[in-house]
Amino acid sequence: MTDPLLLGQRVLAILEHGQRDATYKLATLMALIEHSLENLPAGPDDPLTVPIPELAHRVLALYWHQVRPFEGHELAQRRTGSRTRIIDATKALREVARAGNSRLSLELASGRAPAAYTEAIERIALALIKQPLPRLQKLPGASRNDPFLYDDSFLGENVSRSSVRAHGDAIVLRPGVATALARLAGLLKPALEMMWVEDVRRMNKFLESDVPDVAGHLFGRERTALAAVRGPYKETFGPHCFYCSAHLPADNPIDHVLPWSLVGIDGLANLVLACRRCNGDKSNALPAMALVDRALSDTRLSALDDIATQLQWPTQRERVVAAARGIYRGQPPGVPTWSGYKHSERLDITFSSWWIAQI
């Protein structure tokens, strides 16, 4: 079985000591972690096929909001002279979808401009094939890659999309790698975000001064963007905290049931009304299974479909379920989970209807 900690150390060693001319390696690894978490194989030692177009979609989603101006500046995500194929493809889709500088979701943009979305995926897939995927496993000074994550022998700068399609248009994570990445998600993702912020600061001289939250801009922690769901949620579910039923003021928080720091899913199925006390106490803690059961109940999801139509905001139920399965399967038996203000309970997946239904 692949040792998650040893694999994590190896990945970080390559990223810390290798050459990072752009943030693309970080984005690629984050996308691999997300895919592993949401598509966890049945056995811990099983390999996992990762379609390159699916990986390209996840990379596009990471840059989708990042390419908007920050403090009046466009943030460089690569050193001078490096290619900007991924950034250019993202910007082109935003322009065709008339996204401007708004927080328009990628899901809605792809529906507005399906042909442009398909073109963006193709361009990003080609960029991944040529650079970050074949370079992600190479230590500085090494004459060749050490493919401990996946076989990259058919990837590289001179490779065409057609030749990669002949290999199934996918990479295959080696046995045990997907499970290890999923289990390390809570540790690796914050580390990758820190590296990403450091790289962006290094590539943008104006960020050396005291500026507002650049990490928030890069990774979507702009809570005001979630305010649009507050009114419809209160009309549908009542002005009460999802966790403790306390009556809510006008400006109450919107909480991610599965922590944003772990999965970053803004779909309606992962969003609930919360009071400040519960929101602050829960923070990034893993919720008890009973809370996930309530969030994914058929009654609630049926109501969310109407809100999704009203706001043109995706529910992402399937993604939330897949992420939850990946998260909880990677937890040690009996791990504490947050069950309410100042309360916790040991993890027990025995009686979860959504869990059983998805096995």
Rank of each mutant, 00 (worst) to 15 (best):
G8P: 01
V11H: 01
H17R: 15
A31N: 03
S36Q: 01
A42C: 02
P44S: 08
P47E: 02
P47C: 07
T49C: 07
A56M: 10
R58V: 09
L60N: 02
A61H: 09
Y63Q: 13
H65C: 07
H65A: 10
Q66R: 12
V67W: 09
F70W: 11
H73Q: 14
L75W: 01
A76L: 07
Q77H: 15
R78L: 10
R79L: 10
G81P: 09
R83V: 12
A92G: 10
R98C: 08
R98Q: 14
A99Y: 00
S102C: 05
S102Q: 10
R103D: 13
L104K: 13
L104H: 05
S105E: 15
L108S: 02
A109C: 10
G111R: 11
R112M: 03
T118G: 12
A120P: 01
A127Y: 01
K130F: 02
L133G: 00
P134T: 11
R135I: 00
Q137P: 06
R144I: 13
L149H: 00
G156M: 10
G156H: 08
E157R: 15
S160I: 11
S160C: 12
A166E: 15
H167Y: 05
H167G: 00
L173S: 06
A185T: 04
L187D: 12
L187A: 12
A191G: 03
R201P: 00
M203N: 00
K205Q: 13
V214R: 05
V214D: 05
E222Q: 14
L226R: 04
G238I: 06
P239W: 07
F242N: 00
C244A: 09
A250V: 14
D255P: 08
L273Y: 05
S283C: 06
P287T: 04
A288Q: 08
A288G: 14
D293I: 07
L296T: 10
L296Q: 11
W313A: 06
Q316K: 14
V320T: 14
A322L: 08
G326D: 00
G326C: 01
R329K: 04
P332R: 14
P333C: 04
P333E: 14
H343Y: 10
H343I: 08
